[in-house]
Design a binder for these strands. Sequence first.
DNA 1: AATTATCATCGTAATATTGCGATATAAGAA
DNA 2: TTCTTATATCGCAATATTACGATGATAATT
Lengths: 110, 110
Amino acid sequence: MGASKTDLFTTEQNEIAAMAKALAHPARIAILQYLVEKNVCITSTLVEELGLAQATTSQHLKELKQAGIIQGSVEGASVCYCINPEVWKVYKSLFNNFFKEIDTTGQQCC
Amino acid sequence: MGASKTDLFTTEQNEIAAMAKALAHPARIAILQYLVEKNVCITSTLVEELGLAQATTSQHLKELKQAGIIQGSVEGASVCYCINPEVWKVYKSLFNNFFKEIDTTGQQCC
DNA sequence: AATTATCATCGTAATATTGCGATATAAGAA
DNA sequence: TTCTTATATCGCAATATTACGATGATAATT
């Protein structure tokens, strides 16, 4: 198979999973951290930064862009990427919500 | 390929990515939500709940257990799973940290 | 106009994930 | 003991992901 049975789950569950999937690679985490740190947008200094091939880096950027968490604008010959603040907030609040209530006082069998 | 080049990235980056990977499937999100809601530990009422085959459900539980976020204890013939509160907190704080500072006032090119 | 630099995309190889039926294992009931 | 119930694991098929070189496309430089 290899494909998730998305129809079995709620929209929210699928959304959270999709967001998590976008973050499920160290290179993509590294890209996001870099973009947050250098507030300024980056082209592909990232290629040098990451140590991955240009094609691979481009592919990871594409995934992040498709997830909506970053956006890119053409800047002459190069492309400038940066965090999409609104989507960033959505991610933030969704994960915050997800990890919120956990009642340790309830009975546990393990 | 299909395997990530983990050696290129920091331990933190690999950790966050690994955590995100554990959450990167709607069935696993559903399992965690169910375990949080029913504070009480569950065996495989989950199989009925999820609508996936028993083998598939077991596999997802295994992944969550390997990620450390849930733990299971044998309860006679059945197994009782529940959230691991400490690891849950680690996830919570790591994601919180990751999504923390974002300076929208900085100059942006997109 | 020709060359170079910066990306994106295509094609391909290696590996991982998802899903399920079938089978194994262990506990409890008949 | 034999049968049932509850899980885990094996083996397979379908698909997805990761990575890279090669090739395009476009903009800037010479």
